[in-house]
């Protein structure tokens, strides 16, 4: 903010002229990057297909209606598998994520080297998408639900551990100090001073991730890791569009129900 004196008048401006120029300069850089990115993408695009897209969309859309309702009975088992992948994957992830989070939090880590290892586990688990984890695990464990469950688990560790360790770092240190002053050992300070404070977060994060995992596990079938994605992939490849629309509606319903369940449970816990 500046106030200038111009011909006996005070003029208020948000920025000085120099600041204004620097500001414009940043905008210029930003816009050039975006335009450059756009150019790269558009160079690799066959515009004929893009122009054709609305007609294609209308075509596929009309083929999708009406959904093949009878097919939905065949989807009961894949949906059951999908839910199991998400649930068991979340359980596995939480069992590993909680200790990792305690090692990663600055105020509870046993040692700074341990902390670095924990942070590395978190970032590598988070960086690799569950579909890529599944791709690798299908090679190792063979196609099926197991690979999907482990993939969801591995992907969720980082996510859960990150949120949990951030909340551990934000706890009220006074409460822990009070427990410490009674002569409690380190482990006792943990269970009386720290865990009661972070337990709601731990539960909340688990439910939140479960909700996300339901969504994620619907696609693992694309690489053969079980769940409803398998049917989706098959139906798209065989151009069975009425089946595709049925599957999408089933996914929609599953996600909707899971969102409702997680909201209910979260409300009950916190």
């Amino acid at each position: 903010m500046v106030v200038l004196k111009k011909q006996d008048e005070l003029v208020w401006k948000k920025r000085t002229t120099r600041e204004q120029w620097i500001n414009w300069f940043y905008w210029l850089i930003g816009i050039s990057i975006v335009l450059f990115a756009w150019k790269i993408i558009s160079d690799k695009t066959v515009w004929f297909f893009v122009q054709d897209a609305p007609r294609q969309a209308a075509d596929i859309g009309s083929r999708m209606i009406p959904p093949k309702w009878s097919y939905s009975f065949e989807l009961i088992e894949p949906v059951w598998d999908t839910i199991n992948i998400a649930t068991l994957g979340t359980v596995i992830a939480m069992i590993i994520a909680v200790p990792v989070a305690f090692c990663a939090a600055r105020n509870t880590t046993p040692h700074s080297t341990v902390r670095i290892v924990a942070l590395f586990i978190i970032v590598s688990s988070r960086s690799v998408n569950s579909l890529i984890w599944a791709l690798m695990l299908v090679y190792i464990l063979g196609p099926g639900v197991l690979a999907g469950t482990v993939a969801i688990g591995l992907r969720s560790i980082g996510f859960c551990a990150k949120l949990i360790y951030e909340s551990i770092e934000e706890i009220d240190a006074n409460q822990v100090e009070a427990v410490k002053a009674t002569g409690a050992s380190n482990l006792q300070q943990m269970i009386y001073g720290i865990i009661p404070q972070v337990l709601p977060t731990i539960a909340g994060v688990g439910i939140y991730r479960w909700d996300i995992n339901i969504r994620e596990s619907t696609i693992l079938g694309l690489v053969g890791a079980g769940g409803i994605g398998l049917q989706l992939n098959g139906s798209i490849n065989t151009l069975a569009w009425t089946q595709v629309s049925t599957i999408l509606l089933v996914i929609l319903a599953t996600v909707f129900v899971s969102e409702w369940v997680s909201a209910k449970v979260r409300g009950a816990i916190i």
Binding site: D172, Q175, E177, A178, K180, T182, G183, G193, P196
Partner: peptide
């Protein structure tokens, strides 16, 4: 730790573990 047992402490802002 053993000696701390013989020293009771009362805190500003109570410092109770609120969720217990």
């Amino acid at each position: 730790r053993k000696s701390r047992r013989k020293m009771g402490m009362i805190f500003q802002e109570y410092a109770l573990v609120e969720r217990l």
